[in-house]
Design a protein around this nucleic acid. Structure first.
Length: 260
DNA sequence: ATGGTCGTTTGACGA
């Protein structure tokens, strides 16, 4: 299975790129974040023509997540599947694809450590962990992926000192990732690459991409059974490049691939 | 080490 996560920062703005990327890489499952579309504006037919079933959970203007699959989509859920109050933001979609329970997540940014949105982010991650535990066991084939807006450790940021007072690298956020790992998920890209400087997001401003100033915040967290079958993990940095008339997302796709 | 950039939109705001 080849499974990919990609924050596209508007699917309208990125549709041509996504179509070309699907044809080049032929993933079995593609999880998208920040589609910024309402459900009735999601281009399902475009993806169907390329051989993909889709499930989109959107709200318009902001947020929006999707799962594209050419190995089936079963039991889709838009939002948390815990039966609690609906999240007003469209930030998570679940579906079972080829026997793997998949979540496409767009974790709240947090904005700043003293902002209410940061508390929302921490609570959102608690709810994700509970939702995961309610739907799956660590013995299942599970992939929880997406834009976590968290760099799991200091190798994943270009300047740890700078981020000591900012979101994305705080101890509280990293503890939420650790909770998911303790439950039984594996940061499978990190399992394959020890080096720092391997990022998935670069700020549009200041030429940060070309200066190699980024963060690894797009993660594929898988159960052990999935991680043991993964042979290749990569970030498609080339997709972060491109001309002004066909600009890239500020995130690159992150891919895992393995046997079966 | 910061922002000077994007995308939503047509004035800011979010990332």
């Amino acid at each position: 299975m080849r499974i990919v996560t990609w924050n596209v920062n508007s699917l309208n703005a990125r549709l041509g790129r996504v179509e070309r990327w699907l044809q080049t890489f032929e993933p079995d499952v593609l999880c998208l974040q920040e589609t910024k579309l309402a459900d009735d504006a999601f281009p399902a037919l475009t993806f169907e023509a390329l051989g993909y079933e889709t499930f989109h959970h959107g709200q318009g203007q902001w947020n929006g997540v999707a799962i594209l699959s050419r190995v089936g989509i079963e039991n889709p859920i838009g939002g948390f599947g815990d039966g609690g109050n609906p999240d007003p933001d469209a930030r998570i979609a679940w579906a079972t694809c080829g026997g793997v329970r998949v979540a496409s997540c767009y974790v709240p940014n947090g904005r700043s450590l003293d902002h209410e949105h940061y508390q929302y982010k921490l609570r959102w991650l608690d709810r994700l962990a509970a939702d995961l535990d309610g739907q799956c066991t660590p013995a299942d084939d599970v992939v929880v992926c997406g834009d976590f807006n968290i760099a799991p450790d200091d190798r994943d940021v270009y300047d740890p000192a700078k981020f000591a007072t900012e979101t994305h690298a705080s101890a509280a956020e990293r503890e939420k990732i650790q909770t998911l790992l303790d439950w039984g998920l594996v940061d499978v890209f990190r399992e394959h690459h020890d080096d720092g400087g391997l990022y998935s997001w670069w700020d549009y401003r200041g030429g940060n991409f070309h200066k190699k100033l980024g963060m690894r915040i797009d993660l594929l967290l898988t159960t052990r059974s999935v991680a043991d079958r993964v042979a290749v993990t990569l970030v498609d940095r080339n997709e972060r490049k491109g001309p002004k008339d066909d600009p890239p997302s500020d995130h690159a796709p992150v891919l895992i691939d393995g046997t079966r």
